[in-house]
């Protein structure tokens, strides 16, 4: 369980990124932070593994304040996946994954075996293990990034727009893969995105952020769609001007669902 207690962050240059942020991420659940650029998503995510030190409040992992923990040890116990994968360009794919294990003191042979296993889990072709990251496609790199995050089987997985830089088809593929991994591995996951569709697809809970890290609404995708807190949320999730509203039309005895433009979206059973 991860708990944010009145967390605030003002950077050295005076920029206020987050103020009075409260959130509980239950164990084994996926919480998605969604908001437009500059709304403090990365800042909040990095406060968890102490890459950013909050200026106010506390963050607790299983009731232990992260501020009391050694930052390097803490980071080794938490998986982190970033946009563009952030792989080390001078290490081969398999070594990129193994490096996390080597840092935790696991012997080389065992680290490589485990890396191959986890690369298999994320569905990367084994012919790519000995390539360098620059020889991979964006989608393949992203899979390696996820494998690296999962390598030492952490309880917590932090993901910062991991699928932000790939094309829509690959993104959909990676999202499906992500849902499968979540079902299988049940990591406590904090996922950052600015894509509301992705947030609804992956999140057990979705946190919609406004500028300055202010929470607009927290809830399940169903709750947010059924009862948007305000106009900001309504427009952010696309409920304005009749968007996302589906209607039923009768056609030859079949009930067809159409979207706001009258385009057929499916058949009602």
């Amino acid at each position: 369980m991860i708990e944010f207690r009145s967390v605030g962050k003002q950077f050295d240059d005076g920029t206020r990124a987050v103020s009075d942020f409260n959130l509980v991420v239950p164990s084994h659940a996926t919480v998605v932070l969604v908001g437009s650029s500059g709304s403090g998503k990365t800042t909040l995510l990095r406060s968890i593994n102490r890459m950013v030190e909050p200026t106010e409040g506390q963050i607790l992992i299983d009731d232990v304040d992260v501020a009391t923990q050694n930052p390097v040890e803490l980071r080794r116990s938490i998986g982190y996946v970033m946009q563009h994968a952030g792989l080390l360009p001078h290490r081969k794919v398999i070594d990129n994954v193994a490096t996390v294990l080597r840092l935790c003191g696991i012997p080389k042979k065992r680290a490589l075996d485990r890396s191959a296993e986890v690369l298999g889990t994320v569905g990367l072709d084994s012919s790519l293990y000995t390539k360098y990251p620059s020889q991979l496609s964006g989608g393949q790199r992203q899979r390696v990034g996820v494998a690296r995050g999962l390598a030492n089987d952490p309880n917590i997985l932090l993901m910062d727009e991991p699928f932000g830089a790939v094309d829509p088809i690959v993104r959909a593929e990676l999202q499906t893969e992500m849902l499968r991994l979540q079902r299988e591995l049940e990591k406590t996951t904090v996922f950052v995105t600015h894509d509301i569709e992705e947030a609804f697809a992956l999140g057990d809970q979705v946190v919609i952020l406004k500028k300055g890290g202010e929470v607009a609404q927290i809830g399940t995708p169903q709750e947010i769609l059924a009862d948007p807190a305000d106009d900001f949320v309504r427009s952010f999730v696309g409920l304005e001007r009749g968007q996302r509203t589906l209607r039923i039309e009768e056609k030859d005895g079949q009930r067809i669902v159409v979207d706001e433009y009258g385009r057929p979206a499916g058949v009602l059973q």
Binding site: H84, G86, L87
Partner: peptide
């Protein structure tokens, strides 16, 4: 970004 990523991995 690569440096951030290394830090996040626990270097």
């Amino acid at each position: 970004m690569v440096l951030d990523s290394a830090t996040a991995c626990g270097y």
